[in-house]
Amino acid sequence: MNTADFIFQKTTKTVEKATYTWQTPSNIALVKYWGKSEPQLPKNASISFTLNNCHTTTTIEFERKVNQEKSISFELFFEGKKKDEFKPKIAKFFERILEYCPYISEYNMTIHSENSFPHSSGIASSASGMAAIAMCLISLEKELTPNLPEDFYTQKASFLARLGSGSASRSIEGPLVVWGKHPDIEGSSDLFGVKFPYKVHPVFEDYQDSILLVDKGEKQVSSTVGHNLMYNHPYAEQRFKQANENLQKLSVILQEGSIKDFINLVESEALTLHAMMLTSNPYFILMKPNTLEIINKIWEFRAQTNSNICFTLDAGANVHVLYPKAEKQRVDDFINTELLKFCQKNHYICDNTGVGAQAL
């Protein structure tokens, strides 16, 4: 597939009015993507667990314009309140995709969106949010052009979501999604995410992710700014090479069930992501003191109990605690007795791998 394949084919069918609602998940990258080129193309391939409980629910109401004025027109409500400050990012997204979805200029759109988790706190809210909008647009496109293969709509939804937020390309399907062209991943592409194409060892099925909310506030540095700082980063090229090598290794680990190797690679990836932030110019720190307290407690617990618990981090202070489902009770007890005190208001989210976007 190339970008031209996703350009909307004219149709004689019209839809005067329609409403679609989608629930789309966040995701947590195991091999991180940090650094991109225009238009939203990754400098290295990445792979993520699709989450289940951390999701965005979005409804878009489409009403065909009477005067057929060709312009993008929408209102945005987030968690019941009009959010004009969110509109520039959505408007930029619509401008980017207009070539591929020209029909959006023919409608007045009203967007209602809400999250099951704190916005802008490093749980990939832009990923789930942009994926939800993309799924609503694709629902309209399916009505306008109903005879295309189902996998085309899935790929185009991921393609569109990517143009809003790179990691959103990984929030359409699940439970493991690869984004970025990689020689060891069949069907992989820089243009859209694809499901991990190989059989996963049972130990990695229904994997658990307890997200410890160290800081529910908005990040000091946005992911967009962070990505841009990779352009002149002294270690950028080596990092991109390392990430692609780690994805090759992780592909084997996921198939063979080498859980100790999984722990080592995933934690190393998380720390490397933040090392890129620490060594960029300007430099910045998204981890908080309690982030480090939790990491050290996890290391101590693992050494004492031989548990398969590990952590990863996104571009924020919160800690994703990963572990097999068989250890859920033991890890829950550990979190409640040892880690909750490091969370803001003792809050954490119990999550697990999920299947991707769902129509409501």
Rank of each mutant, 00 (worst) to 15 (best):
T3Y: 12
I7F: 04
Q9Y: 08
K13V: 15
A29L: 08
A29E: 10
Y33N: 05
W34L: 04
W34R: 07
P39D: 11
P42I: 07
K43E: 14
N52Y: 14
T57I: 15
T59S: 02
T59W: 00
E61D: 13
F62G: 00
F62L: 02
R64Q: 06
I72V: 10
E75L: 04
L76K: 02
I90K: 00
F94V: 06
L98A: 14
Y100T: 07
I104W: 00
Y107L: 00
H112F: 12
H112C: 12
S113A: 13
S116P: 13
G122C: 03
I123H: 05
I133G: 00
A134V: 03
M135V: 01
K142T: 07
F152Q: 04
L163G: 05
L176H: 15
D184I: 13
G193K: 01
V194I: 15
H201L: 09
D206V: 05
L213S: 04
Q220S: 15
V221S: 02
H227T: 11
L229C: 05
N232A: 11
P234M: 07
R239F: 07
K241I: 15
L250C: 06
V252A: 13
E256W: 08
E256T: 14
I259S: 09
D261A: 11
D261R: 09
F262M: 08
E267M: 12
S268F: 13
E269A: 05
L271G: 07
T279F: 09
S280Q: 04
I285K: 10
T291Y: 02
L292K: 09
N296K: 14
I298H: 01
E300Y: 14
F311S: 02
T312P: 05
N318K: 07
A326F: 11
E327C: 07
I335E: 01
E338H: 13
K341G: 09
H347P: 09
T353I: 12
V355M: 12
A357V: 10
